[in-house]
């Protein structure tokens, strides 16, 4: 399939987030796709708080099986999370394991007032009791397909691709 633009999906998420009326929220995007989506949301929502990013590599539950992600980036939460309303953003919600890891990491920085999960795409296949409050679009890829979010020439889009044998679960 051809890449599909995420722009209308992000606008939809923005509208839904506005409806929630969160007091002085901070946006945190999960590397790499979630950080891209969060950046768009941050601009559309015109938040005064700084955008945060998380790399959950050190919190993954498959470290002893697959080892460390060789391209681990630093997490950056410039605002601090204590008593704040957090909007946690990821590109694709699938097994829920990434979100579990992200929640653990956020709590190592402090105790937020609330965490709202916002994802651009969700697909079936949950392995943990985790659901998103804000969903841009629900998709149903075939078993061996993976939703891949890309940022190219400032175009944020997604496409369904055949997952490689060693793809990490999202």
């Amino acid at each position: 399939m051809n890449p599909v633009s995420l722009d209308p999906i992000v606008s939809q998420m923005t509208a839904n987030l506005r409806d929630r009326n969160l007091r002085n929220p901070i946006l945190i995007g999960i590397h790499t796709g979630g950080a891209w989506v969060a950046e768009r949301l941050h601009a559309e929502l015109a938040l005064s708080s700084k955008l945060g990013t998380l790399d959950i590599s050190f919190y993954r539950d498959d470290f002893s099986r697959v080892g460390l992600n060789p391209k681990v980036k630093s997490s950056d939460l410039p605002e601090g999370v204590e008593d704040r309303n957090i909007i946690l953003v990821d590109d694709v919600l699938h097994t829920g394991r990434t979100i579990r890891a992200a929640l653990n990491e956020i709590f190592s920085y402090g105790r937020p007032a609330s965490v709202t999960l916002a994802v651009a795409l969700e697909r079936p296949g949950r392995e943990l009791p985790i659901e998103a409050s804000i969903v841009g679009k629900a998709i149903e890829p075939a078993d061996k397909q993976q939703a891949q979010v890309t940022l190219k020439d400032n175009q944020l889009s997604y496409q369904l691709v055949d997952s490689s044998a060693n793809a990490q679960s999202t």
């Binding site: 590599s57 460390l68 681990v72 630093s74």
Partner: peptide, 23 residues
């Protein structure tokens, strides 16, 4: 180089409330 890159990501841990990761 990979050891140095990974160490880079561990550098920010001093500023966290909980300075541990569960690896």
């Amino acid at each position: 180089t990979q050891i140095l890159d990974t160490a880079e990501s561990f550098m920010t841990f001093g500023e966290r409330e909980i300075k541990k990761v569960p690896l």
